[in-house]
Design a protein around this nucleic acid. Sequence first.
DNA 1: TCAATGAGATACCAAATGGTATCACGAACG
DNA 2: CGTTCGTGATACCATTTGGTATCTCATTGA
Lengths: 114, 114
Amino acid sequence: MVSRTVYRMQTQTQNAFRALADPTRRDIVQMLAAQDMTIAQLTDQFEMTRAAVKKHLTVLSDGGLITVEARGRERINRLEPKGMAPVLDWLSYFDQFWDDRLNNLKEAIERNKK
Amino acid sequence: MVSRTVYRMQTQTQNAFRALADPTRRDIVQMLAAQDMTIAQLTDQFEMTRAAVKKHLTVLSDGGLITVEARGRERINRLEPKGMAPVLDWLSYFDQFWDDRLNNLKEAIERNKK
DNA sequence: TCAATGAGATACCAAATGGTATCACGAACG
DNA sequence: CGTTCGTGATACCATTTGGTATCTCATTGA
């Protein structure tokens, strides 16, 4: 074991990977890719309470993967494409290891950023 | 809440995303990308016991991200590029979505400039 | 005005997670 | 041989995680 102190703050990369680690949250991301949804609408699609879905949405928000817009008493949850960037960046570090599927994906996003 | 039972087996996608959710495990992946390593070598790089590193390696192995080859009394841990496929596949599902959204974003910015 | 509706906050719980300490075991080497 | 070295396995612990129940608050609409 090395003796230097390895402190590790919560980076956006960590929060994004953590957000994607749960199958329910990945399902939510897929649903929000189809259309923006309120918590109530999302809850209809799962076998869990609104409170549980809300927790998942908080984690997704911490990860930068979604944004929320208040509209009256409703909250519109929306996918935030930019939030995926840290994940894609980390994965692209291994270009020489896995195939170029990722490269294509990342290049598409880079193109559109400009 | 929908009433149908949503059982969810441990898929390779889930195991891979779960493996990548921990910062120590992502560090291990990066180190193994540089060179194959034994547990002892990896443990030298972290402030934790060999047992803890071993647990992380087990999770990485479950996720299909590494393979282990016995050589004498040593175990060589090696990165398995194929294991990343489910992750890349899942992410590429949103290729078109990100493309479109980032395009819209770009266009909105361009409009506001004028 | 006031009841219904959509959502946030909090307390609480069981299980999973990330870590340690410790023991066991086969391979390497004097 | 016997001992040391690299590793695996297990028991145990504290914290995090994913979930429920419940209460509150603000908006909506008859």
